[in-house]
Design a protein around this nucleic acid. Structure first.
Lengths: 341, 341
DNA sequence: ACAATTTATCTTAACGTTTAAGATAAACTG
DNA sequence: CAGTTTATCTTAAACGTTAAGATAAATTGT
C-alpha cells in the first residue's frame, strides 16, 4: 500500500495540502466542518499525522530537548541522583509540550539523535570532547548541570562549601582517625588509595571540590587527613563502595569516621560496617552526600547533604526553555543530620 | 552568520552539492584529493556534517531504534532489570552503528521522537494504547520483550514455569504458612492484600503468570495459599516492598515462607526481616525472581530465578536488526539456590 | 449598490539532503 | 584513430512538510 501523506490525503479529499496541514496545525485557518471532515478521513486512512521528520526539517524545530549524559545511558540513568534530575527535567518539559531525549555521552556516534534536539542540558563532566564540540557548534541553546563549561550557563551546587560543612560537623562529633571514600578521584577503574601527588588530580570538578572541602575542614580542625586515607572509587555503586569500605575499615587502627562522597558509597560502607560487627555511630560515624531517598530509610539513617536534584532539573529545564542560558545558578543544599553521625 | 549547509559549502568550493554529499557518503564517487579538500574546507567552516533531519527525510532511515518503555523514563530506567535489558540492547545496536532512543510509554506526546526510529522494541505491557496504535501503524519493524501482543514477534521467558519451579523448591524446603509479595497484581497504587475475586486480575501478563505458577505449585504440594496471603505491591522498589513485607511478617501466625515476585521485593523483605529480628533461613525463607546483581551480595544471598536480561536484550536487538520480527522466542532461566532458602 | 474588509482556501517556494541518470573528458582497446 | 570504457563531476527530481502570499467568495459599512 502507498504511504499515506499529507499530499495523498489532500488528493483523496480534493483539497490542497496546505488545507490538510492547517487542519492539523492551525484550526483557525479553515472552516470547522471541513477540518472535522479532514480529520475523520485521515483517521480512516490510518494517517498518523504529519510526518515528524519533514515537519522538523521545514520548521527547524523538533520540540525535543536532549540531556547529554556523561556516561552510557544504562549507567547514568541507574544512578539515583541522575534519576532525580531526569525526573525534574521531565516534569517541566512535559508541561511545556516538549519531549525529552537521553543521549549517551560515552559513544561517539554522530547521529540523528544528536542533531535533532532544540536544546541541550549537559549533565556532569562531558567525557567525549568531539561530541561536546559538535553540540556547541550546533548553535542551539545549552545549559550545564553539575558541571562548568566556559561560556555556558549552568546550574550547580556549592560542592566545596557543603563538603566543608558536613565534614566540619562530623569531625566535631567524632574524634579519631578519618578516612574519605571518594568518587572518581583519579583515572583508574579500580579501587585504590590516593598518592600524595594525586590529591588534586580529579577530572570531575564535583569530586575535586568535595575533596577540597573535606581537606579544608580537616585542616581547620587540625585533624590529620593524608592521601593514604583517601580512597578512589571508580563507579558509584554498592559493589565498589563495599570494596573500598572493607579496605578502609580493616586497617589498624581502624578509622572512626568515614567521609563518603555519595550516599551510595555511604550505604555500601554501612553494610560493610555491619558485616564487620561495628556499631554505628558508637564505633564508627559515617556521612554521605546527595540526599537520595534510600538514605532516609537506611539503618541507621544516613547523615548527609541533601542536594535537591529534582529541583535542579526543574530549574535547569525552565531556564533552557526561557532562553536564559547565560546565568550561573548556585542552588542551596541542606545538611540532613541523622543517626549515622 | 548564515548556516553552513551542503549547498553553501558547494557554492563556496565551486563544486556541486552532489559532490559534497558524496565526499561524506560515497568516497568512491570522487577523486581522493578533491574529497580531502572538501573535508578540510568543511572542517574549517565548522560544518558538522550533513543535516541529519534532511538526510532522514530523504533516505527514510534514521539509524535509530527505540525502546518503548512501559512507564516513565525515570522509573523504567531505574529498575535494575530494565537496566540490564537496555544494556544488552545498547551493546548490539552500537556494534551495528545504530543509535538507541528511550521512549516513555507514560505520556501521550505524539512526537518527533516517536516518528523517527527505524524500529521499536516494546518493553513490558504497554500502558498507552494510542501510542501503541501509532507505533503499529507506522509499519516499522516491532518486537516485544517481556510482553505479548498478537501478531508481533517477542522475546520472553516462561514466567509461569519458573515461578512454579522456584515455588516448588521453596515449599519443599519450608513447611508452614506461605505468603506472596506480588508486583502489580491489581490496579491500585497502594499496598494491599488481594480479594479472592482479584486473583487473576493482573493486567501485567508477567505478574499474572508468576502468580499462577506459585498457585499451581502450592496446589500441587497441597499447601494453603489464599488471596489474603497475597500482597499487591504497586511499584517495584524497596519502599513499597518493605511496607508489604512488614504487613505480612507481623501477622500471627507469621508466614515462614515469602514468595517474592522480584528480587527488589525480596531484598526489601530481607531488610524488614532483619529489623524484626528474624533469622533467615531458620525462621523465614525468602525467594525472589529476576536474578539482579544485588541479590548475589545481599545478606543472606538471595535464592532466585535468574533471567538473563542483558542476553534478552541482545537477542531482541539482533532479531530486530535481522528483520526477524515474527518469531516468538522463549529464553531459559536458571534457579539460583542460595542462602535465603 | 459598491468599495472595503473579512473569511476560506489554494499556489508556490522553500527546508537540506540523497541518488539515479546524464554529461564530459580522459584513458584505454584493437 | 574510431569505438569503448572509466573516472569524475553535474543536473534535477524527489522526500513530506509549512509559511507567506495570492485568489476568490462572502460579509460588511455607508
Amino acid at each position: 500500500m502507498p504511504k499515506v501523506t499529507l499530499k495523498a490525503l489532500a488528493k483523496h479529499l480534493g483539497v490542497s495540502v496546505a488545507t490538510v496541514s492547517n487542519a492539523f496545525n492551525r484550526p483557525d485557518q479553515l472552516s470547522a466542518e471541513l477540518r472535522k471532515h479532514i480529520l475523520q478521513e485521515s483517521e480512516k486512512l490510518g494517517f498518523s499525522g504529519p510526518n515528524a521528520t519533514a515537519r522538523s526539517l521545514r520548521t527547524g524545530r523538533s520540540d525535543m530537548i536532549a540531556i547529554l549524559l556523561s556516561d552510557t545511558l544504562e549507567y547514568s540513568v541507574s544512578d539515583p541522583v541522575a534519576n532525580q534530575l531526569i525526573k525534574g527535567i521531565a516534569e517541566v518539559l512535559q508541561d511545556a509540550g516538549k519531549d525529552m531525549l537521553l543521549l549517551s555521552g560515552a559513544k561517539a556516534v554522530h547521529s540523528t539523535a544528536e542533531a535533532l534536539p532544540d536544546g541541550f542540558i549537559i549533565y556532569g563532566s562531558p567525557k567525549n570532547p568531539e561530541q561536546l564540540e559538535r553540540v556547541k557548534q550546533s548553535g542551539k541553546p545549552l545549559l550545564c548541570v553539575d558541571c562548568n563549561l566556559s561560556g555556558i550557563g549552568s546550574v550547580n551546587i556549592d560542592n566545596y562549601q557543603y563538603a566543608y560543612d558536613i565534614a566540619e560537623y562530623a569531625l566535631q562529633k567524632q574524634p579519631g582517625k578519618v578516612a574519605v571514600l571518594g568518587l572518581r578521584l583519579i583515572d583508574s577503574d579500580r579501587v585504590c588509595r590516593l598518592q600524595q601527588h594525586e590529591l588534586y588530580d580529579a577530572n570531575e570538578a564535583i569530586s575535586r571540590r568535595r575533596l577540597e572541602g573535606y581537606l579544608a575542614a580537616a585542616t581547620q580542625q587540625q585533624r590529620e587527613l593524608n592521601a593514604e586515607q583517601i580512597w578512589h572509587i571508580p563507579v558509584n555503586n554498592h559493589h565498589y563502595a563495599q570494596i573500598a569500605a572493607r579496605e578502609a575499615l580493616t586497617q589498624h587502627p581502624r578509622p572512626t569516621l568515614l567521609l563518603c562522597m555519595s550516599d551510595r558509597i555511604a550505604l555500601g560502607a554501612i553494610s560493610v560496617a555491619r558485616q564487620l560487627g561495628l556499631n554505628i555511630p558508637q564505633d564508627l560515624r559515617i556521612v554521605g552526600f546527595d540526599g537520595i531517598e534510600e538514605a532516609e530509610r537506611s539503618y541507621p539513617a544516613l547523615t548527609t547533604v541533601a542536594q535537591h536534584s529534582d529541583e535542579k532539573g526543574r530549574i535547569a529545564a525552565r531556564m533552557l526553555l526561557a532562553g536564559n542560558t547565560a546565568e550561573n545558578v548556585l542552588l542551596p543544599c541542606e545538611l540532613r543530620l541523622r543517626d549515622s553521625c
